[in-house]
């Protein structure tokens, strides 16, 4: 369903009017001594679904906080929708936070009404857009329910509806599907894709590789506040070895990692407990050699398509989804 932009928020269409929705240059932000953003530069094209991909602590959420004005960068330039960030500029941005952000004592309708008033929507315009958005996210019949009574998926959809109330040109999403069940994830993404189809740029922070590959047209890989790589997921994977083999060992391997690294056609070997993840030019000769030399120590193997996780590992030397230090291996 296509929903008209909020008339009170701005008389504009969703059509992007700027070449870059977000542009940051040499951005530095510190938490004490630690640099959460360490000279980060990147540009998010208008109308894109852009994923910031990296492990916890890589600077994704900090970047979103800077873009919404919650944190002030120590140095660097920030341009959002063609202008430096200001209070007024936030009228054109929506944000879905990582953690829950609903008042349990307010109803669904009151939550939307407060947002409408905060964004200067006229009462009738705010009410009309609230009805349309609640209808879109299947919460129209829960308008009088306290937010405390909603399920996790419903709360997330309400947060999304709230973020879309001001017809934002840019929507910032910090791990929007975290802790949602698969069905709720799917439904949330349907709504996000609808918003994007209407011209809203989506900038998404995530460490969910599969989600980023599936939905993001462009991804930026971040590590310790720096940009490691940026591009289309397919382009980023193209430079990588073509196949990926997952090996389950009977016992935790010791010499096998170094041994496999020395084999021709082997890219990267990651070790996580009794499992190793190996990128190779071709799986067949690799597997033949593996069974020949270590056959009795292998419990099972699986050939997988390479993912952005493999790209990240090649560039950074550790994975996105595993906690720091959980994986060993070398590249």
């Amino acid at each position: 369903m296509k929903i008209a932009a909020a008339p009170g928020a701005a008389d504009r269409t969703f059509a992007p009017t700027h070449p870059a929705a977000v542009e940051v240059r040499d951005l530095v932000y510190r938490y004490g001594e630690r640099r959460a953003l360490d000279g980060l530069s990147l540009a998010v094209p208008a109308g894109a679904i852009f994923g910031l991909l990296g492990p916890n602590g890589s600077g994704k959420s900090t970047l979103l906080s800077v873009l919404i004005g919650r944190r002030i960068a120590e140095s660097g330039e920030v341009t959002v929708l063609g202008e430096p960030l200001s209070n007024r500029q936030r009228a054109r941005i929506g944000m879905v936070f990582q953690e829950p952000s609903l008042d349990p004592q307010m109803t669904v309708g009151e939550t939307m009404d407060l947002q409408a008033r905060m964004f200067g929507l006229r009462r009738d315009a705010g009410a009309a857009r609230t009805r349309a958005l609640l209808d879109r996210v299947d919460l129209a019949d829960r308008a009088d329910a306290l937010t405390a009574t909603l399920s996790g998926g419903m709360k997330r959809r309400l947060e999304l509806a709230r973020a879309l109330l001001n017809s934002p040109e840019l929507l910032l999403l910090d791990e929007p599907t975290l802790a949602l069940d698969p069905d709720s994830r799917l439904r949330l993404w349907e709504h996000l894709l609808e918003a994007n189809a209407e011209g809203c740029t989506l900038l998404l922070a995530t460490n969910d590789v599969a989600e980023a590959e599936r939905y993001c047209r462009t991804v930026a890989l971040l590590d310790e506040g720096r940009l490691v790589a940026q591009g289309l997921p397919e382009d980023l994977k193209r430079d990588l070895r073509h196949e990926s083999v997952r090996i389950e060992w009977v016992e935790e391997p010791s010499d096998e990692v170094a041994m496999m690294e020395a084999w021709p056609g082997v890219g990267h070997v990651r070790l996580a407990g009794h499992t190793t993840h190996v990128t190779v030019d071709e799986a067949s000769p690799f597997l033949a050699r593996l069974f020949q030399q270590t056959g009795d120590r292998v419990r099972g193997v699986r050939i997988e398509a390479t993912t952005l996780e493999d790209v990240y590992f090649q560039l950074v030397g550790r994975g996105i989804t595993s906690p720091a230090g959980a994986e060993g291996g070398a590249s």
């Binding site: 919404i68 004005g69 919650r70 209070n87 007024r88 500029q89 936030r90 009228a91 941005i93 944000m95 936070f97 953690e99 829950p100 952000s101 609903l102 008042d103 349990p104 947002q115 905060m118 964004f119 200067g120 709230r162």
Partner: peptide, 17 residues
Amino acid sequence: QDRDSGVLKVLLASPHS
């Protein structure tokens, strides 16, 4: 309460100081 429920950051993300 607003800080702990996350509502404060939503309010601060509005176009007001």
